[in-house]
């Protein structure tokens, strides 16, 4: 009969199990999949991410040098991050903030800003710092 009483009493005098969420946020796990970001300078517009995406949330416009993402359709599986040959897509451990409008994201590559050859491993690190 009193099996539960002990747990209840312990809970009375211990710290709450919950967090006051928006005010107090937990550090994400190091391997957490939060959201994807594009490092557009590295993109070569091969379209592999668009082809492999299970949710069809990426549209690559080769002619216009645009990389479009529908973040509300993205299931954050990380396939695009795995397949990208130039590491132009990186996974962030933080979730996206909620939004009022379902607007797609467009990353546009400037003609001059594009490096002649991407250096894999370097740029994603820099991109993480910016986030």
């Amino acid at each position: 009969m009193f099996e539960m009483l002990r747990t209840v009493m312990q809970n009375l005098f211990s710290r709450p199990a919950t967090r006051l969420y928006p005010k107090e946020q937990r550090e994400p796990f190091p391997s957490a999949r939060g959201h994807i970001e594009s490092v557009i300078e590295n993109c070569i517009f091969c379209g592999l991410c668009q082809k492999r995406c299970p949710a069809d949330c990426i549209v690559v416009d080769r002619a216009g040098k645009d990389w479009n993402l529908d973040p509300y359709r993205c299931i954050i599986c990380g396939v695009c991050v795995e397949v990208c040959p130039t590491k132009a897509i990186v996974m962030s451990t933080y979730f996206r903030k909620p939004a009022r409008m379902r607007e797609p994201l467009t990353y546009h590559q400037e003609e001059r800003g594009r490096p002649p050859k991407a250096k894999p491993g370097q740029d994603p690190g820099e991109a993480k710092d910016q986030m």
């Binding site: 539960m4 747990t7 209840v8 809970n11 199990a17 796990f29 391997s31 957490a32 999949r33 954050i76 990380g78």
Partner: peptide, 25 residues
């Protein structure tokens, strides 16, 4: 049994954290 329900789901949350630690989601 409301308090047992809360306690069971509290335990479940710890298991979910295990899942997130190994898989990222």
């Amino acid at each position: 049994f409301e308090s047992l329900f809360m306690q069971a789901w509290r335990n479940r949350e710890m298991i979910m954290d295990c899942q997130e630690a190994v898989s990222g989601s």
